[in-house]
Design a binder for these strands. Structure first.
Lengths: 321, 321
DNA sequence: TGAAGGTGCTGATACGCATTAGCGAAGGGG
DNA sequence: CCCCTTCGCTAATGCGTATCAGCACCTTCA
């Protein structure tokens, strides 16, 4: 009953000093301090008898480190349909945080208390310029999950541009010559990167490329690159309703992975790529711990895994010849 | 890169003492200590300039709160298939935490760090007696999500017993007289409660009841109460394979909600109940904030919503008459 | 017999914060 | 001119732990 047992209590019980108890507790092999085996045993016995456990608060105070990594996001994470999207990031973050012995502080509202943590990980598809500047201005370690268009923001991102370009290359190899990119192409960096990867690859291959916000029938297009994976089912249905077979008449490439929320899954195994979300989370933690230890910020892009699927096939014009 | 800014730093910058900084920071209305408006402003300016935020550990050592609630679970939450099950709890916890202005500290390993938070919420289907005793022994505020078989543990639980009994009553009203409970019936309280609610209700209604760990064909049983919702699809398939129509020949009641993880969903809209998981999370936060403010622990049970479904119908024997 | 070296431990201190007793200075009243 | 009050602030302390300089005491060897 009553107070927690402290090292002082143990010390009094065994007739030694608090310092001795501390030494016995963390008997590092390299320690210069020697304790007689008999004394050590007495202390250990008392510790076992009382069920003493070192108080993490005291320990952290002495360490000058609280081993807390902050996490916050610029979009609702837990509720809503984005949950399925963010979940893998959190899995990765949590895994690695456990490995490095840190707890996670989930900021429920904004970054104003970010200094509570040793460093922070920020999530969110899009973060405005001025908000990023504010984060940098805090001069408190942080790492973004997802590339940011700012030289001062350390991040672990996904190489959406590279993945998109690779899929364009595949389509070109399959004979496609007329491409369409469907999606906003911004303002989030992840969308910009997809569109840029698409545009650059099409230009380099010398094929025709268009960009539209939403799909509208275009007879000559044989390959559609869809920015928003959640819209895959709708797009394919739409195409079929217009009498276009997928992938017979038109190929569809989805630039990401449909999260299997409440939404209807696409009727086909879609050609797409996979964002290494958990790995991004893990590396973000690694990166952050480096920053906390005084390292310089880095900017890292991780490759996305291409998933062949069955909606990217030989182009119609090619097949017809 | 610099150390954390401390009150000492602020004090030196403004030419006052550390104590003054502390006083300015938490200027309680009832304080006897007076600070000149001008001095106060100088300190506040320095705080703003440096972005100073009080250190979590320091405050906790001085036995102050940080508006941080810990969350802690005795089973893997984020990874694994249990994610879908725990997610709604977390949603509720996060919602309410934001409303009361608290951030959440996710402990990545064990309860030994719980004192870093002002108070903790613990999750998990089953927590052993000795572990619960340890939690109580910490003398640190905590609330369990889920009923615990211990008078000293404050909790917000679901009334599984009541919900199960209500479904038994419905079945009795539909003419069922021979019941089977399929599941472990323990050791988790949630399972105990279901089994007890089942047994008590059957006894009260004077109907025949059996309990088995896994379903084995029993010709005379007309109503099966299944403890583990995830097994619903398997059970129904199994019954059909044995030539028993559901609900024609035998009714099936599922004591909870199948989480739509990777598992196959049941082929029918199953008769079941719904655990108010988000609400439990919210009330756990409320409860915890009360505890942190010095209130006594309570034990609360929330009602589960019954879902009629289509697998509990008139009993065969009744229909045949 | 005295220096040298080893053994076993302790006292002091720091970590960041909140709190309280109390001190010097200024102002007012006698 | 001195006492008393009020104002504005600070020194000191405690919280639980880790660390380190250093102090007795003992043994060994010259």
């Amino acid at each position: 009953m009553g107070r927690r047992v402290t090292q002082r209590d143990i010390a009094r019980m065994t007739g030694v000093s608090q310092a001795t108890v501390s030494v016995v507790l963390n008997d590092r092999a390299d320690s210069e301090i020697r304790i007689a085996p008999e004394t050590r045993q007495r202390v250990l016995d008392a510790i076992r008898a009382t069920g003493y456990v070192a108080d993490v608060v005291g320990r952290r105070l002495a360490d000058r480190s609280n081993r807390i990594l902050g996490v916050f996001t610029y979009e609702p994470v837990f509720p809503s349909t984005t949950a399925d999207f963010y979940h893998p990031f959190l899995v990765g973050i949590e895994q690695r945080a456990e490995q490095v012995g840190c707890d996670l502080l989930l900021f429920t509202s904004g970054p104003h208390r970010m200094r509570l943590a040793d460093g922070c990980i920020v999530l969110g598809r899009f973060i405005g310029k001025e908000e990023l500047a504010r984060l940098v201005g805090e001069h408190h370690p942080f790492v973004s999950v997802g590339r940011r268009d700012s030289p001062d923001v350390p991040y672990v991102g996904a190489d959406y541009g590279g993945a998109t370009a690779a899929l364009v290359a595949r389509a070109v190899a399959l004979g496609h010559r007329r491409f369409a990119y469907v999606g906003t192409g911004g303002p989030a960096e992840s969308h910009l990167d997809r569109l840029r990867g698409f545009a650059d690859a099409c230009l380099a291959a010398g094929v025709h490329a268009t960009h539209q916000l939403r799909w509208t029938p275009q007879d000559d297009v044989t390959a559609i690159f869809l920015e928003e994976p959640a819209d895959a089912a709708e797009l394919i249905t739409n195409l079929r309703d217009h009498g276009r077979d997928v992938p017979g008449d038109v190929s569809v490439v989805v630039l990401g992975e449909p999260t299997r929320a409440g939404a209807t899954p696409p009727p086909l195994d879609v050609t797409r790529f996979r964002t290494p979300r958990s790995e991004m989370g893990r590396q973000a933690v690694d990166h952050l711990t480096e920053l906390v230890n005084g390292a310089q910020g880095r900017q890292t892009l991780l490759a996305c895994e291409l998933v062949a699927g069955e909606t990217l096939k030989t182009a119609r014009s090619r097949r017809d010849t």
